[in-house]
Amino acid sequence: MDTFAFAVVNGLLYGMLLFMLASGLTLIFSLMGVLNFAHASFFMLGAYFAFQLSSVGNFWLGLVLAPLLVGLLGATVERYGLRVVHRHGHVAELLFTFGLAYLIEELVRLVWGRQPVPYRIPEALDFPLFSIGGIDYSAYRGFMFAIAVLVFLGLLALLKRTRVGLMVQAALSHPDVLWALGHNVPRLFMLVFGGGVALAGLAGVIGGNYLVTEPGMAHQMGTILFVIVVFGGLGSLLGAFLASILIGILQTLMVAFDGTLTDLVVGLGGAAPQATGPFHEIWTITPANLAPVLPYLLLVVLLIVRPRGLLGTRET
């Protein structure tokens, strides 16, 4: 039972981290119609910037500066890249962000090398906060959780209380209305892209030392992220939230448990199946083996059953 509770708490934390990325991605998509393929790459940059800053100064310096730097970079990319390809349509924009993701990954390899960098949890937070059934829950996880909740509340306040937030909300439900309002749309785009990407950067800062900071982290995170936004329904913030939490918990739970089809067959009183021949692994796969497959399986099944996603209203 304790392992279960622990896995759920960890899954929730992972889900919140995912949502920090998914929320920015969803906002950018709803507003600009661009699915930012490089979103997870900015997450990775956040982690690497924080690592660099913490090796010069300390973790707190990275916490403040790295998201700002990533946001600035994002705004620049929007201004001088995305805006240029915008007139060639959404496929061109998607291609551009794809090329960007490719480039950022190579850039990271170029500057920080192929191996993981030693980006560590700050000592001030490296102590057990409490323990359940003999397993410690570290203070840093509590800190991550607090940041994620703060971001969530901040985002909510921003959307409900500010002018920019109201405009974004209007655009979420009626994508065409924005142009009719006659606001400075290009500047809003730059702002939202920079902001969303900065959020991903922040997730990188607090998640990079919790996970591993290495050049493959963007690809790993990126594909899960797309599953989440498609699963939640492209353009739905609430859908993205639910999907983040669901996938976060599901993946953590699957890693926490073992047991195979063989166990099941034996448990039901059958004879253990022969482990030979093609696809014989089916009898010995554990849920942990399946954890990387599961999100995509969910995605494909959902798209067959409900192409709009969990809470989406738009289909394309």
Partner: peptide, 15 residues
């Protein structure tokens, strides 16, 4: 077509 197709193709490939 469009973005959704691109994402499905990615999901399929990862799967």
């Amino acid at each position: 077509a469009g973005t959704t197709f691109a994402m499905i193709s990615l999901g399929m490939a990862e799967l």
